[in-house]
Computed example of a mutant assay.
Amino acid sequence: MRAGFGALASSTAIGALASSAWAKKVQAAALSDQDKADVARIEEYLNGITTMRAKFQQVDDAGNIAFGMIYVRRPGFLRVQYDPPSQVILVADSIAVSYYDAELNQLNQAPLGLSPLWFLLRDHVSLGGDVTVTTFNRGPNVFEIGIVQTDEPDAGTVTLVLGDKPLELQQWTIVDSKNQAVRVALYNAEFGVKLENALFRTPEKKKGKG
Rank of each mutant, 00 (worst) to 15 (best):
A9L: 12
S177W: 10
F119G: 00
V59F: 12
E44R: 14
I65Q: 13
F200V: 11
A7N: 12
V97C: 02
D151R: 13
E190K: 12
T159N: 12
L195A: 05
V182T: 15
L114V: 13
A189D: 03
I65V: 15
D101N: 15
Q27H: 14
F5H: 03
F119M: 12
Q27V: 11
P84R: 05
L167S: 06
L195E: 07
G129F: 02
Y100W: 04
L120S: 02
M1Q: 09
D176Q: 02
I145S: 04
L160G: 09
I65C: 03
V184H: 05
P153Y: 07
P85L: 01
V72P: 01
L78G: 06
D60E: 10
Q57M: 09
D101A: 05
D93S: 05
L195T: 00
V175E: 15
S86G: 02
N197W: 10
P166Q: 09
L90D: 03
S86D: 07
S11K: 05
I174C: 10
V158P: 00
P111M: 08
Y82W: 01
D35T: 08
D83N: 03
F136N: 11
G113H: 08
E196V: 10
A62G: 09
Y71I: 04
A9P: 07
Y71A: 13
P153L: 04
Y187K: 08
A18E: 12
L107K: 00
A29R: 00
G6Q: 00
V97P: 04
T50S: 08
D123R: 10
E144V: 05
Y99A: 09
L112D: 11
Q149A: 13
Y187W: 03
I70R: 01
Y100D: 04
V97D: 04
R79N: 06
N64V: 09
K178E: 08
E190G: 01
E43P: 04
T51L: 09
I145E: 03
E168W: 07
E190P: 03
F136E: 02
I147Y: 03
W172P: 12
E103C: 07
S94H: 14
G139M: 10
K25V: 12
A54P: 05
A62D: 14
A9D: 11
I42F: 00
N64W: 03
D61I: 06
